[in-house]
């Protein structure tokens, strides 16, 4: 063991994209690994759970956890890593806001399980067995982690010191976060390590935005062709850039697609989805009832659009049912 700072990386309920974003550091990964000791990274390196448990509390300088918390095992790991780490950094949209996996909060656990294990046409489960916490297999008791009722963000389970936002975060932001840790120049605790202002501030199409924005029709991207130089909102295409923290290098915009909000809200906004629907509603330039209905109907899945990344962290958090935790 050297005296270098220790870093751990862990994944919870996620797609693996955040892990990939670390790999996307490319040569910079070498710079980072030269400066630190990676002590735990299940997706890439062969350290064991017991190795970490054996460490002293606070021995790890920083742990990056990506993914939301849905399983008992994830909660356990998060809590264990919290104990062992000086800093816990939420890495990516799922850890930060619940992410796409958080959309599952629109359904109850029972509905998800029965759909997945009993109803989908491709399932072959004639006895209709649902996942169990324990089972006897060849005379041995096998345990499975439990499946929580609700998807939670990392900071709903453990204290989080910093957040690197994005689905996935850019390699630049990951590298900068690492350097902040190494060079001891971290901003106040709780900060989201990206821009302070919303995306419009750095949007390459900023100058094409009209001074008075008014929308009479929402167009979906498959329905229309748009000017690749012009502000999406000015073209009637929903873009959540104004309600989304900047710092993503406008990746989607540069790929000629509107912002979907993965960096989450800015510091002073409590609920990104509510803000998004509120700002869009305020620029609808229609008063006639029929026309209003038409324009609202042009958004078939408002939950999926406005809360794509932020449902688990929103005020309502999902479909409310009695007794839900």
């Amino acid at each position: 063991m050297t005296g270098k700072p220790k870093i751990a990386l862990y994944w919870c309920s996620s797609c693996g994209g955040c892990e990939e974003s670390v790999i996307d550091l490319a040569e910079d990964l070498l710079t980072v690994t030269a400066a630190v000791d990676i002590v735990f990274w299940p997706v890439a390196l062969d350290f064991k759970y017991k190795d970490v448990v054996a460490m002293n509390d606070g021995e790890i300088t920083a742990t990056l956890i990506n993914g939301a918390i849905r399983m008992g095992e994830q909660e356990h790991m998060a809590k264990m890593l919290r104990k062992k780490s000086r800093l816990v950094i939420a890495h990516g949209s799922c850890a930060h806001l619940g992410g796409v996996v958080g959309l599952a909060n629109f359904y109850r656990r029972e509905d998800l399980l029965s759909r997945l294990y009993q109803e989908v046409p491709t399932i072959n489960n004639p006895q209709g067995i649902l996942p169990q916490l324990e089972t006897i297999e060849s005379g041995r008791k096998v345990k499975l982690p439990d499946f929580h009722d609700t998807v939670k963000t990392l900071d709903q389970v453990v204290e989080v010191d910093y957040t690197i936002p994005g689905c996935p975060p850019t390699p630049e932001l990951i590298k900068e976060a690492m350097m902040m840790v190494l060079e001891d120049r971290l901003p106040p605790r709780g900060s989201v390590l990206a821009e302070k202002k919303a995306l419009c501030d750095t949007c390459p199409r900023r100058d094409s935005k009209p001074d008075k924005l008014r929308i009479t029709e929402f167009k979906r991207v498959y329905e229309t062709e748009w000017d690749p130089e012009k502000c999406f909102l000015a073209e009637g295409i929903i873009c959540l850039g104004p309600a989304t923290r900047g710092g993503c290098n406008a990746r989607c915009i540069n790929a000629n697609m509107p912002c979907r909000g993965c960096f989450g809200p800015t510091d002073d906004v409590r609920d990104q989805g509510a803000k998004s629907s509120s700002f869009l509603a305020s620029i609808i330039d229609v008063t006639d009832k029929e026309a209003l209905k038409k324009i609202v109907d042009a958004i078939p899945d408002p939950g999926g659009l406005f809360y794509r990344y932020g449902l688990a962290s929103s005020i309502l958090k999902g479909k409310m049912t009695r007794g839900r935790s």
Binding site: K196, K197, A198, C200, L213, P242, S282, I283
Partner: peptide
């Protein structure tokens, strides 16, 4: 307006 937070999206101007 908090100038440090305003991203210049201009949505408010017409409202």
């Amino acid at each position: 307006v908090d100038e440090d937070l305003c991203c210049g999206c201009k949505l408010c101007v017409g409202l």
